[in-house]
């Protein structure tokens, strides 16, 4: 296996991980601050992809598509939070999980009604198509852009969380929401803000992924489960864990799918590797999760 091939897959893994990190950061924020299990997070990813792709297909302007996607998901998220989800903050996690599960059903059906059940497509914006030479490895420009955007967002989020007043309130609220309320902060507004930002991040991930995945109803579910694995491995409530965990999981998943099959073929018979290869590849991430949890049940970078 050529080193450039390995490097290529590793870069792919990082790109996937960066995209996951946008989702994971949003989800872990929502979870860390409001102690709210939001299973519908993946639905906002789907919404961002659909809305963004539609805007792009109509206008041809990628930037507009991004803005549209993020705005749409933030608005829908804000409305959902205000009307329904707010009532669940005091419920136990089981009810939260069930309610947001109900949201998934509604959103998926909505998407199927508006855009039809068949996959929807968006092409890579021409300005970003083609490839970029990274130390001898040609890497698709678009995917590099995702990495760049993702890392910039990571940096922005870090600055906001750790250096701004809002970030301080967010961190304080995750430890002790009552004190923050006692300080005169409108916790309701803070919660709504955090939830909306989380949805926006999911929407951003959606539009960024749109040209390179098939956009269809139900696409949020698969990516959601992986996001859950990321935040469990990284440590629920930890932004650092969300990012580092996402890169880790993204790389393991991507490289696992590419390398496990051929590696097995080298050591085992065709029959075994033919069956076990794909199976192992899809479950390697969960095996890693199990190992991490067996060693550190609270996650790798847990804050609690």
């Amino acid at each position: 296996m050529a080193p450039s091939f390995i490097a290529f897959q590793l870069l792919n893994g990082i790109q996937y991980g960066v995209m996951l990190s946008l989702l994971a950061a949003g989800l872990t924020l929502i979870f860390g601050i409001m102690n709210f299990m939001n299973l519908s997070h993946g639905a906002y990813y789907m919404l961002g992809a659909f809305v963004g792709a539609t805007v792009y297909n109509k206008t041809g302007v990628f930037l507009l598509a991004i803005v549209g996607a993020v705005l749409a998901t933030m608005i829908v998220g804000a409305v959902a939070e205000r009307l329904v989800l707010r009532r669940l903050y005091r419920s136990d996690h089981l009810h939260q999980v069930l309610a947001t599960f109900g949201f998934i059903l509604v959103f998926d059906e909505l998407a199927k009604t508006v855009w039809g059940p068949a996959p929807y497509y968006m092409s890579v914006p021409p300005m970003l198509s083609g490839s970029f030479d990274l130390a001898g490895v040609p890497f698709p420009t678009y995917r590099l852009m995702i990495v760049a955007v993702g890392i910039s967002f990571a940096a922005c989020l870090y600055v906001v969380i750790h250096r701004s007043r809002l970030g301080m309130l967010i961190r304080a609220s995750s430890h002790d929401p009552e004190i923050v309320a006692a300080m005169g902060v409108n916790v309701k507004v803070l919660n709504a803000l955090v939830f909306t930002i989380g949805c926006g991040l999911a929407g951003l991930a959606g539009i960024l992924a749109a040209p390179i995945v098939s956009i269809e109803p139900g696409m949020g579910s698969g990516v959601l489960i992986l996001t859950l694995v990321v935040i469990v491995v990284g440590g629920v409530g930890s932004i650092k864990g969300a990012f580092l965990g996402a890169i880790l999981i993204g790389c393991i998943d991507t490289c696992g799918r590419v390398f496990i099959g051929p590696s097995l073929a080298n050591v085992a018979t065709k029959q075994i590797s033919g069956a076990a290869g794909p199976a192992l590849a899809s479950i390697i991430v969960y095996v890693v999760m199990a190992v991490v949890l067996a060693w550190r049940p609270q996650g790798l970078f847990s804050v609690r």
Partner: peptide, 12 residues
């Protein structure tokens, strides 16, 4: 795992 991680890990 704690309650919340429990939900997620059983799912996973």
């Amino acid at each position: 795992t704690r309650e919340t991680a429990f939900i997620m890990t059983t799912l996973a």
